[in-house]
Amino acid sequence: MIGTDTTWIDPANEDQLKAWETREGVFWAERAALFEHSLHRYDDWLLRAAGIRDGDRVLDIGCGTGSTTRAAAWLAGSGTALGVDLSSPMLSVATRSARDTGARNARFLQADAQVYRFEPETYDVLVSRTGCMFFADQYAAFANLAAALKPGGRVALLVWQHPSQNPWFTELTTALAGRELPAPPPEAPSPFALADPSRVADILTSAGFDTPECESFKEPTYWGPDVATAEHFVIGILGWLLNDLDEVGRAQALNRLCATLAAHLGPEGVTFPSAAWLVTAHKPT
C-alpha cells in the first residue's frame, strides 16, 4: 500500500489508484496466473508488432503482474524492460515472478504514467496490453509517454474494440444486470476508451507520433477451466453489478451468469470471443 501520499499522481486518476491499490488490485494479484493466461492468445501479435531487439529499452504501461514485461525483457536481451502500473499488489507479484523466472533485466515502478517524469528520449519501444485505456486524460498521458521515447521509437498497443465486438463484456454484463448495458462514454476511463481508431489517431498524432495503424485481431479470452472457476473470476471483476440487488435478484443474476458461462464451456475451458485493435506507430526521427 502507498499510504495517504498521492502527490505523485494526477488528481484525476486518484479513483483508479484507489481501485487498483485495494480490492481490484488484490484480486488481480491473487489470481495472476489466470489473468495472465486470459489474454495470452494476443501476446505473440503484440510482441511481434513491437519488434523488440537485443539492447532495446522497453517501457510497458499498465503492466499488471508483469507477464508482458518479462517477455519484453527476454526479447530485449542485453537491454531492459520497465513495467509501470498503479497497483502495488500487482507489482509485488510482478517483481517476485521476474526474480523467480530469472528475468534480471525486468524491473517495475509504481507510477502514474500520465504525469511521471520519465527520463527524456530514453526508451526504444512502448508497449501496453490492454493497460493504457484508463488515463483520465489520454492526450496528456500519450504526450508524456512520447517524450520518454527516443526519436524513431516504436509503439505497440493492444486495446479493445467496441463492446459490440466483445461478447465477453456484453454477455457477462447482461447476465449480471439482466439487461444490456450502454457502452461507456468514449472519453471516460474504461476498457473501451480507445475503441475508436479515429480517436486513437487523434490522440497519438496530437502527442507527436506519426499516424498510427490499427489492425483488427480476434482471439478467444480464457475465463477458467470450469464454470465454477469462471464464475468466481467474473464476480471478482464485475461483481459491482450485484451491489444493489436483493437476495432474490442476486440469485437470479448468478443463475443467468452460470448459464452463460456453461454455454461457453468447451475443451479449452470457458472462453468468450473478443476483438482488439493492435495499434502501431512511430515517433518521428
Rank of each mutant, 00 (worst) to 15 (best):
T122F: 10
T122N: 04
Y123I: 07
D124E: 13
V127D: 12
R129T: 08
T130E: 13
G131S: 11
G131V: 11
C132K: 03
F134M: 12
F134N: 09
F135C: 06
A136K: 09
D137H: 10
Q138F: 02
Q138G: 03
Y139D: 15
A140H: 11
A141F: 13
A141V: 13
F142D: 06
A143E: 13
N144D: 05
L145M: 08
A147H: 06
A147L: 04
A147I: 01
A147E: 09
A148G: 04
A148F: 01
L149Y: 01
K150F: 09
K150H: 07
P151D: 00
G152S: 03
G152F: 03
G153Y: 01
G153L: 02
G153T: 00
R154E: 06
R154G: 07
A156H: 14
L158E: 03
L158M: 12
V159D: 03
V159S: 03
V159N: 07
Q161W: 02
Q161H: 02
Q161R: 15
H162D: 14
Q165G: 00
Q165K: 14
Q165D: 15
Q165N: 11
P167W: 09
P167Y: 07
F169D: 12
T170H: 10
T170M: 09
L172P: 05
T173H: 11
T173G: 09
T174S: 15
A175P: 04
G178S: 05
R179Y: 04
E180T: 13
E180K: 10
E180F: 02
P182V: 11
A183Q: 08
A183M: 11
P185G: 03
E187M: 10
E187K: 12
A188P: 02
A188T: 14
P189C: 10
A195F: 02
A195S: 15
A195Q: 10
D196I: 00
S198P: 00
S198W: 07
S198D: 14
S198Q: 13
R199F: 05
R199H: 07
R199N: 04
V200L: 09
A201M: 06
A201R: 11
D202E: 15
D202M: 12
D202A: 15
I203R: 12
L204V: 12
T205D: 07
T205P: 06
S206T: 14
A207K: 08
F209D: 01
F209H: 06
F209S: 03
D210C: 06
D210N: 13
T211I: 09
T211L: 15
P212L: 13
C214D: 00
S216W: 02
K218H: 14
K218D: 14
E219S: 05
Y222H: 03
G224N: 01
P225C: 04
D226W: 05
D226E: 09
V227E: 01
V227L: 05
V227G: 04
A228Y: 04
A228K: 08
T229L: 01
A230D: 08
A230W: 07
